[in-house]
Structures are given as structure tokens and as C-alpha cells.
Design a protein around this nucleic acid. Structure first.
Lengths: 113, 113
DNA sequence: TAATCACATAAGCATATACTTATTTACTTC
DNA sequence: GAAGTAAATAAGTATATGCTTATGTGATTA
């Protein structure tokens, strides 16, 4: 049932989560797939800064990226060996759906349908 | 039932846990109270380095300190608003009891009884 | 009260981190 | 294929982090 969690890799995952921006990203991705430019709008942060955070998460194996058209969408990687651990950590954090709803209201939401 | 976890303070707690030394300390303290010199032996690290890690944990409110005689013992703070959260995070990490048993075998365990 | 042990704090240093601006790459559309 | 949009990468910078050595502080013991 329990993954074999070793201290070092767990500490590294926790370090990835231990940044407000990345933790918020992860909470958002646990609810919705999101593309880079949406994060840029959500965090009012430069595009490279967002890209660099996402790269760390990708290098840690905890998110997937998927290009669709011009956009690259990021989502939590359910195949990650730390997926359930991360779900446990973030499950009681406040939903960030309202942020995406704000984006939608501003017409800034990206949909590829 | 759920604490109101806000993203920023949670990220700060996760940052505290996101260091191998501190995460191991926390796992140890979840099983046993421990004094500074025991940590020094366990981690083969300088005494100031250990003290500084413990200070961060204390500043974060997640450990208690208690002086008994010459020694200062540290333990997880069950009154911390993040206590249950931390328990959840560390519960599947491998027990570090063997380390304390090694200390005992070497006669380096501190007991104040 | 002098010496010793346990721990904390101060100060310095090397590396890590999180950003910035500038540029490059990938894709779409005209 | 030229122009425009989205994202990644490169390079630079300021601050944070985790250690070190040196010193200060508090309790114990002779």
C-alpha cells in the first residue's frame, strides 16, 4: 500500500512544494490542466519565471507537459511515484478554482477544443 | 476537522521539511524526544549546524525545546497548528529508530531519568 | 569559584534559489 | 516564407540557505 518513501527523495519533493508559487501551481493543476500563459496571468510574474518553476516540477517528475497547438499544457503526473503523496499534502489547501474563474471572466482562459 | 491551511504558511512549513537533515530530525522526533548532542552524533554534523536547523524548526513553531539538566531536548510540538499535517507528511517515511538504537549500543544515548 | 560540558549565537563564506532581461525555438497564420 | 504568438533557454544578479570557525552563555561538578 505505502510507497517506499526514502528520506532524500521525499525531502527533494517537499523542497519543490516548499515554494508558494509552485505549491499554488500544483494545487491548481490538481484541479485543472493549465498552460504557461495562464500561469503568467494568474501569478502576474514573468513568463521565464513561470517556465523555470514548471521545469523544476517537470524535472522532479511530478508534472506532465503536453503541447497542443501553440500552447504547452501542464498537469499533475498521475504516474509519478509521488502522486498520492502530493495529493495527500495538498488536499486540504484552499481550492484555487476561483483564480481560473477570474481568468475565464476576463476571457483569458485557453481552451483547445 | 481540517485546519484552515493557507498556501503561504503551508509552503513555509514544506520548506522547513524540504531538507534531508531536518526531515530526518522530524521523523526521529516523531518517535522519540532527542537532545542536541544526540543529533550531532546521529548526523555526524557540527553542533552549530544542528543547532541552526533546530532553531529553524523552533521558529516555525513545530518543535518544542525543554532544558533538563545540561541538556536541551527537542520534540515535535503537538500543539502546533501544523502538527497533524506534519504527521501526515512523514507517516510513511522509514522509521529512524535504528539510528537511536545504534546510539544506545554505543552508549551515547542521553537519558535523564 | 574554577573548570567542564552542552548548547546558542555571531560572523563569514560558498552554493542554491528565484528572479530579471535578452534571445532562441516551435508553432500558427497570413 | 514572413510575421506573430507561446514557450524555453541563456546569462546575469540579488538574496537565501547551509555550512564553517570562533565565541558567548547556562548548567554541573570539583
Amino acid at each position: 500500500m505505502n510507497e517506499a518513501l526514502d528520506l532524500e527523495t521525499t525531502a527533494n519533493i517537499l523542497k519543490l512544494l516548499g515554494d508558494k508559487t509552485r505549491l499554488t501551481m500544483i494545487k491548481i493543476m490538481s484541479e485543472h490542466e493549465c498552460c504557461v500563459c495562464e500561469f503568467v496571468d494568474l501569478f502576474e510574474m514573468s513568463q521565464p519565471a513561470i517556465s523555470q518553476h514548471l521545469r523544476k516540477l517537470k524535472d522532479g517528475g511530478i508534472v506532465n507537459e503536453a503541447r497542443r497547438g501553440q500552447w504547452v499544457f501542464y498537469s499533475l503526473n498521475p504516474s509519478s511515484s509521488h502522486y498520492t503523496f502530493i495529493q495527500t499534502v495538498i488536499k486540504d489547501l484552499p481550492s484555487q478554482n476561483f483564480k481560473l474563474e477570474n481568468l475565464t471572466a476576463q476571457g483569458k482562459r485557453i481552451c483547445c477544443d
